[in-house]
Structures are given as C-alpha cells and as structure tokens.
C-alpha cells in the first residue's frame, strides 16, 4: 500500500476538480460566442452568488487564521480593502478621483495580493503575541484607521467616491449582460474552489496539525520543537493574501472601489458565517456564509411583498444577524457542522 492511499485525498481534490471545471466553463463563456440567458428572477441570485464567492475567499482565509491557528483577527476587511484599492489604483485607466496608473490588470491584481500580504506581515510582526481579545482590537483598529485614511486622503484614494475606471476583464470580453454575469460567477467561483482545495490540502497535511496544535496549546507545541511564531505569522499572512486576492478580484469585477464596500460590516458577516457553519471546517464555513448571505436574498424578496421600507427591512435583517451570532456562541459554539471536541467547546 502506498502512502498516497493513507493520506486523505477526498474533499480537497474534488474541490480542485470542480474549480478547474468552473474556470473552464467561465472561459468558454468569455472566449467563445456561447451565450447565457438568465430568467429575470435569477439575476439577484447570480449577483449575490458572485459576492458570496468573493466573500468565500475571505472566510477561507479567516478560518485558516482563527479556526486553525486560533488568531482572532477582527479587522479582516482591511486586507480585502487594501487588495481592492491597490489593484484599482494600479490598473484604473482614468478616474476623476484618486490615483489611476493604468497598468495592465494582472499587475494590479498581483500588487493587490502582495500589498495585503505585506500589511499582514507587518501586523503579525508587531501584534501576533497579543492575547486573543487584544489582537482582535488591534486588527479592528487597524481596519478603522485604513478606512478613515481611504475616506480622508481624497487626492490619493478618491475619498468617499473611491476610484473609478478599473478595468473589467470579463466585461471587456463579453458584451452581453447575462453572459457576463454568468461568466463572472463561474470564474470567481472557480478561483474560490481552487482556493478551497489549496487550504484543504494545507490543513490536512502535517502543516494543519501544527496549526491546530498551536490553537490547543502554544507552549506544548513549542516544547515539541515547532517554531509557533513562524506558523502563526504564515497563517496570518496567507489569510491576508487571500483577502487581498478577493479585494483585487472584487475591484476587477465591480469596476470601482469605494470605502462603502469595505466597512466593518464585511468583517462581521464573514465572522458570523464562519462561526455559524463551524470554524476549522472549510466547507462548513462556506456553508455558514451562504446561510448568512442567503438572508440578504430572503430580505430582498420579502421586501417586494411587504409594505415596509428598505431601511426598516435592513434593520430587521441586522437584528436577526446579530442575534444569530449571540445564539450560535451560546447554544452551538462549534457551529452547525463544527466538531465541538476539536474546537474545545464541549465542556
């Protein structure tokens, strides 16, 4: 029996296969005359679906940090924002606000990922030794600082308007609106699935064992010869880089970035999705995120049939979201599909 048979090779490789298929289908829509037609009621599903796969990258990175290594990052949106802004500023052709350098978009995307990773490295170098709740505060405050920098330095970041004129590679290839949306969903969904495969491989390998050991007891892990600071830094930087990728892809899909897309609400949404699904389980955190984002769909449809205003509905939805977070922590601390013993919450 070869060693390959003994290693778990299931979910990760299936995700890889599915991801590659999605990318190919997306490419088919983009490069061939093949066209898709969406029934009008499906529009909103595809739109929320695109946002879901982008946020999916965020939640996978966050879960690597919190679910596996136990790092409480409550400013995850900052990496998403930095990735988005860096990509936008480098690749935007012309924008009446902020900087637009007009480089080819792949360079913009690469710099976006890099910028987020570098910020992650800087933050972890300074703060990774802090106790969980204080790390949460430092990351949260960092996100707020960047948010107000984006808003206030209008000459560079375009203020509240943000940066416009970011190239949209898929839109450039596909003129027809329906096909463009479907192709975008497949391409970005493919990226998320490939990422799922990668983090699954990483965490099923001995690498993941070390991360989980750090979460359980850092001192013991050190005394077994593991350089835990290195691992924590890596997990933090990988999560940040994934968020940077998500931000870059979002900018290239949306054609613009603005502070309004990168609020603390994003961090809250992915945290609740992760905890609801069950931390330390990649597919569970995606499913949890799907539930939370599904609520947006429900409220959109409900809005059509009830006579109340959109504001009221948004408030009600957020009350529900807040209470879900409270209830999950109290009654199901391991989430819906999480393993309570693995998370140490079965006491």
């Amino acid at each position: 029996m070869s060693a390959l048979d003994k290693l778990p090779a299931g979910h990760g490789d299936r995700a890889l296969l599915a991801g590659v298929v999605c990318l190919l289908v997306g490419a088919l829509f983009a490069f061939t005359p093949m066209r898709a037609q969406l029934p009008s009621f499906l529009y909103v599903f595809v739109e929320v679906g695109i946002l879901f796969v982008v946020y999916g990258l965020l939640v996978l990175g966050l879960d690597l940090q919190y679910g596996h290594a136990g790092l409480v990052n409550f400013g995850h949106v900052v990496f998403f924002a930095v990735g988005g802004y860096a990509t936008a500023m480098l690749s935007a052709q012309d924008s009446f606000s902020g900087i637009a350098l007009g480089y080819p978009w792949p360079i913009g995307l690469a710099v976006g990922v890099l910028a987020a990773a570098v910020l992650g490295l800087g933050l972890s170098a300074t703060s990774i030794r802090l106790r969980g709740d204080f790390l949460a505060i430092v990351t949260l405050a960092t996100a707020e600082i960047f948010h107000s920098v984006f808003v206030n330095f209008q000459g560079i970041f375009g203020g509240n308007v943000g940066i416009l004129g970011v190239p949209r590679p898929i839109a450039a290839l596909v003129a027809d609106g329906d096909t463009r949306l479907v192709a975008t969903l497949f391409v970005l969904g493919g990226v998320t699935l490939v990422t799922l495969a990668a983090v699954t491989r990483l965490t099923e390998a001995p690498y993941g064992r070390v991360l989980r050991a750090i979460r359980a007891d850092e001192l013991v892990t050190r005394s077994l010869g593991k350089s835990t600071i290195t691992y924590k830094t890596q997990a933090f930087v990988y999560g940040a880089a994934l968020a940077g990728l998500a931000g870059g892809l979002f900018a290239l899909y949306n054609g613009a970035v603005a502070p309004g897309f990168f609020t603390i609400q994003v961090t809250v949404t992915i945290w609740i999705g992760m905890l609801l699904g069950g931390a330390a389980n990649h597919r569970a955190v995606l499913a949890g995120l799907a539930i939370i984002m599904g609520l947006r769909l429900v409220s959109r449809f409900a809005l059509d049939v009830t006579p109340v205003s959109g504001d009221v509905f948004a408030s009600i939805r957020l009350i529900v979201v807040g209470m879900i977070l409270v209830a999950v922590i109290r009654y199901r601390p391991a989430g819906i599909w999480g393993n309570a013993q693995e998370l140490g919450v079965d006491r």
């Binding site: 064992r209 070390v210 989980r212 050991a213 007891d217 013991v220 077994l224 140490g344």
Partner: peptide, 15 residues
C-alpha cells in the same frame, strides 16, 4: 498539558 482538541494519534504524530 495534552493537546486536548486533538486525538491521541495526532498528539503523538505532531511531535
């Protein structure tokens, strides 16, 4: 100090 959230097997393999 066991790594309580890991199995006996993983505790030993980790080292």
């Amino acid at each position: 100090r066991e790594l309580e959230t890991m199995t006996v097997r993983d505790n030993v393999r980790l080292a």
